[in-house]
Design a protein around this nucleic acid. Structure first.
Lengths: 206, 206
DNA sequence: TGCTTGTTCGGATTCAATTCGGAAACAGAT
DNA sequence: ATCTGTTTCCGAATTGAATCCGAACAAGCA
């Protein structure tokens, strides 16, 4: 029950378990994945799961953490580049990168993300929101005229939360009513319009 | 297994089961609610659950449908009034009504909504999105100058999906960074800014 | 090699979901 | 009120998944 892996071998096992969990969650959702399935995919015995994880839920939590870490690792390096672009281009670049990330490995992360909006899991997503909030803040630093926008924290809150959910939902759509490109444009336009309207500066987008 | 209730008595039982399910979901989430708990809250025997529902999941689906129906029933009657207001006031009125609805019965519906964003459940939320899309469309009909906005479907998609998620998330926040009033204002401002920026008409908000 | 510690395994146990057969409540007719 | 077929309710028994546990196996070390 919940040991720390000390040997190389067991570290690999833990990793295999987490990846197996991600795969199984993507395939069938957390509710339908059984401990035996995870063990089978990881290529280990059922009992071994409980050597490193308190219970099945702990496995899901670890898988979620892996997802969150990878997502943050995708966002962070983009920041220096994004803060130098105009709003529309920055939003576009961010969203397309995000999409590619979610589509990797046969949509592994996209399929997992669909389950990540339920109660408990949202808690653990905080690092993603913080990374995006960080991007938002740094962007403002590089475009000081934007600081005249009112209600910046609330704007960021709406934009980031609503944005993540909308993108995941859209990418999961069977037959989307609009293309991802259209959605991307609207995302950029929405924010840029607000900035330009409030700040009254067209240079806000340069 | 999955009979139709014929007598008054059994209709009450079905109702009690659905309400018990909502209560239990609100308390502990769907994953942690057991069939026995639902039966206990409903004041019936375990076996009775299976007289009217195929399985536990069917009970959750029915509970979700109840939630969706009630939500739509809250939105529909607002439409005639909202379409005559300016954007900011309409958004404000809608959001405050939505909040009151979610806060009813000791946040019963808010707590349920927190679990409603996972994969399968989003499917069944379609009626809510349709009702809001309907409101959006009718609003445009009453303010034809807004039809000059580009990408209207994508705007509606982002605004509705992002909006619902953001509101539920914010109301669930332990210590919100910003007040609901601020958020409401940003919601209105965001949409109004886009409209005014694109249409170039300040009368868009009258 | 012999000893200690770390790791894996899968059968045994526990607990929740679902079934089933019969008891209780009901509606309608006599 | 009594009888009769139907509807509703129940909870012990079954089933299967989650979890535990102790024996077997591998690694590190003297």
């Amino acid at each position: 029950m919940a040991r720390k892996p000390k040997q190389q071998r067991s570290k690999a096992t833990v990793d295999a378990i987490i990846e197996a969990a991600l795969i199984s969650i993507a395939r069938q959702g957390p509710g339908a994945t059984t401990a035996r399935q995870v063990a089978d995919i990881a290529g280990i015995g059922v009992g071994s799961l409980y050597e490193y994880f308190e219970d099945k839920d702990a496995i899901f939590t670890a898988a979620g953490a892996r997802f969150v870490d990878d997502t943050v690792a995708m966002i962070k390096p983009l920041i220096p580049e994004l803060v130098r672009m105009n709003i529309r281009d920055a939003v576009s670049k961010l969203l397309f990168t995000f999409r590619d990330f979610l589509e990797e490995n046969n949509q592994l992360y996209l399929k997992c993300a669909r389950h990540a909006f339920s109660q408990d899991m949202v808690m653990h997503q905080a690092p993603i929101n913080r990374a995006l909030m960080d991007l938002f803040t740094q962007y403002l630093m590089h475009h000081p005229e934007l600081l005249r926008m009112p209600n910046i924290p609330a704007v960021a809150y709406f934009y980031i939360n609503g944005g993540i959910f909308t993108v995941v939902r859209h990418l999961s759509e069977e037959k989307p009513t609009q293309s991802f490109e259209e959605l991307t444009m609207v995302f950029g336009d929405f924010l840029a319009s607000y900035a330009e309207h409030k700040v009254g500066a067209s240079n806000a987008t340069q």
